[in-house]
């Protein structure tokens, strides 16, 4: 499998996740999008040293992972390139802020490490929430939701078309590079002397492809904007979803739940 096919494979995997059937998948995209935005905004608003508060916000991704049946390790795997970078964001804090706030045995822990942990937790929660939105919502549903939020039809149409083109293009690249490498075994990349003929081939193939794509869109009645069904709206259960999560998030933000639970047991 070459690189392009690998990319396509991962793209399809994300599509398959989004096409699943779970209680979370069935809620409207609009409700999920709004909850995700509220959740990330509230999570980011915690104080830089409020570790217990931020950790409690894990309730939302936790419940969604459970309800959707998407394993947490899938999220970790898909985000494997991003997670180290989240750690990067706060990497300077332990170096710049060395005041100890607690000494465990003889090892001092600095405020820098605390704020680093908070930043990392915030980053992971935001990533999980974004991943859950992407993994439980189909692209056309999200686009319909964006239209409901009054995003101009032009942008939404470009998003939908682009999404379709990307997989076509990546597929085409895969086929072409396979063909090239079968004829040039052991060669790394494309020799510059072959770039002309390679481009010539690309020209012919993609000309056919682009013509077919646009013609078939016109034949299916495309006239400058896609049509959306009623599923873009919010039914009663979607309002329930939105309001319940808003209430839960507000509660978690305003009440130090972890400490209250801890006190109950002491």
């Amino acid at each position: 499998m070459n690189r392009a096919e690998n990319a396509l494979y991962e793209l399809n995997e994300m599509d398959e996740l989004a096409n699943g059937n779970s209680p979370v998948h069935r809620f409207s995209a609009l409700a999920k999008l709004l909850v995700t935005v509220i959740y990330i905004a509230v999570t980011m608003s915690f104080d830089r040293y409020d570790l217990s508060g931020v950790l409690m916000m894990a309730v939302y991704p936790y419940v969604l992972f459970q309800l959707s049946g998407i394993p947490f390790r899938t999220c970790i795997y898909k985000m494997r390139y991003i997670i180290p970078l989240i750690a990067f964001v706060g990497i300077f804090n332990p170096l710049l802020d060395r005041t100890a706030f607690v000494t465990i045995g003889r090892v001092p822990l600095s405020y820098g490490w605390l704020s680093f942990a908070v930043l990392f937790a915030k980053g992971m929660l935001a990533i999980s929430a974004s991943f859950l939105l992407a993994a439980t919502t189909r692209i056309d549903a999200v686009c319909a939701a964006l239209r409901k939020l009054r995003m101009p039809a032009e942008i939404v149409t470009v998003i939908l078309l682009m999404y379709r083109y990307v997989s076509v293009l990546v597929e085409e690249v895969g086929v072409m590079s396979n063909a090239y490498h079968l004829r040039a075994p052991g060669q790394k990349g494309i020799h510059y002397s072959a770039w002309g003929s390679f481009l010539g081939q690309l020209l012919l193939r993609s000309m056919d492809r682009a013509q077919e794509l646009y013609a078939s869109m016109l034949l299916r009645g495309y006239h400058g904007e896609f049509l959306y069904t009623a599923e873009a709206g919010m039914a009663g259960r979607d309002w329930m979803y939105l309001l319940t999560w808003t209430a839960v998030i507000a509660l978690l933000r305003s009440v130090p739940v972890i400490q209250i639970i801890g006190n109950l047991f002491m």
Partner: peptide, 20 residues
């Protein structure tokens, strides 16, 4: 559309092979 698709393929395909 054709030209743009070609350039896309060039960028996406040709250069990625070059940068392999």
């Amino acid at each position: 559309l054709c030209i743009l698709a070609v350039v896309t393929l060039f960028v996406g395909g040709g250069l990625s092979l070059y940068a392999s």
